Simulated scan of single mutants.
Amino acid sequence: MSTTQSERLRGLVEPLAGTRGLDVEEIEVSRAGRRRMLRIVVDSDEGVELDACADLSREISAALDESDLMGEDEYVLEVSSPGADRPLTQHRHYVRATGRLVKFQLAEGGELVARILAADEDGLDVEVPGLKGRKPTSRRLPFAEVAKARVEIEFNRKDKKEEEA
C-alpha cells in the first residue's frame, strides 16, 4: 500500500472512529486471492464491543463507497479490536493494560513477566509475581529498558467488573 493511500485511508477512518471514542491502531491493505483485504484495528480505554465494530464497519463501508480510495477492485473490509494478547507499542497501550499481566522482552536481554500497576510518561510500576510461595515484589521499569511487551492471556483473571461488584 502506498504511503499516500495509507494516509488517505487514515484521514477517512480516524474521524469516523473518533466520533465513537475509538482510536485507530492499525490500517492494513493486503491481497487475499483476487480480492484485497482492508483490515482496520480500533481500540479505546474501555475496550471495543462487537456491536461498535459492526456499526463502525458499516459507516466506513459507506464512506469508502462514496470515495475512490479503494479503486474499482473488490475488497473485503474487516474492522476489529486488537485482541487479548496484542503487543504494547504506545504509551496508551500500557495505560490500557494496567492490571494485566505482561511479558516484557528487555533491551539488555532476558525477559520479565509482571503485572502493570501504573504507567506514566517515563515508565511503569510493575508487580513481579512471587515464585514457589514467595511474595510478589514491586519494581520500577523505565520504558528505555523495554524492547517489546505483550499482554499475557490469563484464564482465571478477575474481570474489573467483578472486582467492582
Results as ranks from 00 to 15, higher is better:
residue 80 S to G: 08
residue 117 L to F: 03
residue 90 Q to W: 01
residue 128 V to R: 14
residue 81 S to W: 00
residue 33 G to H: 02
residue 103 K to R: 15
residue 54 A to H: 03
residue 78 E to V: 15
residue 8 R to D: 09
residue 130 G to D: 12
residue 50 L to C: 02
residue 137 T to Q: 15
residue 67 S to V: 10
residue 121 E to T: 14
residue 165 A to S: 10
residue 41 V to G: 01
residue 5 Q to H: 00
residue 82 P to H: 03
residue 155 F to M: 02
residue 93 H to S: 07
residue 47 G to W: 14
residue 23 D to N: 10
residue 78 E to K: 08
residue 25 E to H: 04
residue 53 C to V: 03
residue 92 R to D: 04
residue 73 D to A: 14
residue 6 S to P: 00
residue 112 L to V: 03
residue 90 Q to K: 15
residue 92 R to I: 14
residue 93 H to A: 05
residue 16 L to C: 07
residue 149 A to Y: 13
residue 159 D to W: 06
residue 144 A to T: 08
residue 4 T to L: 14
residue 159 D to M: 11
residue 97 A to H: 11
residue 155 F to R: 13
residue 22 L to N: 05
residue 110 G to Y: 08
residue 42 V to W: 04
residue 52 A to F: 00
residue 121 E to Q: 15
residue 96 R to P: 01
residue 58 R to A: 15
residue 138 S to Y: 01
residue 124 L to W: 09
residue 83 G to Q: 12
residue 149 A to L: 04
residue 153 I to Y: 12
residue 68 D to R: 08
residue 129 P to T: 11
residue 152 E to W: 04
residue 119 A to R: 11
residue 104 F to D: 09
residue 124 L to D: 06
residue 136 P to T: 03
residue 148 K to C: 00
residue 78 E to P: 08
residue 21 G to S: 07
residue 75 Y to G: 00
residue 133 G to T: 13
residue 79 V to E: 13
residue 133 G to K: 13
residue 165 A to V: 11
residue 113 V to E: 15
residue 130 G to K: 05
residue 13 V to L: 08
residue 69 L to P: 04
residue 53 C to A: 11
residue 85 D to H: 11
residue 95 V to P: 02
residue 25 E to T: 04
residue 138 S to W: 01
residue 95 V to T: 12
residue 158 K to E: 07
residue 109 G to Q: 06
residue 2 S to C: 00
residue 2 S to L: 00
residue 115 R to D: 07
residue 22 L to C: 01
residue 27 I to K: 06
residue 83 G to N: 06
residue 103 K to T: 03
residue 158 K to T: 01
residue 142 P to E: 11
residue 125 D to E: 12
residue 44 S to N: 07
residue 150 R to Y: 07
residue 98 T to K: 09
residue 99 G to F: 07
residue 38 L to Y: 02
residue 74 E to Y: 11
residue 117 L to N: 11
residue 49 E to F: 04
residue 23 D to V: 09
residue 61 S to M: 10
residue 68 D to Y: 01
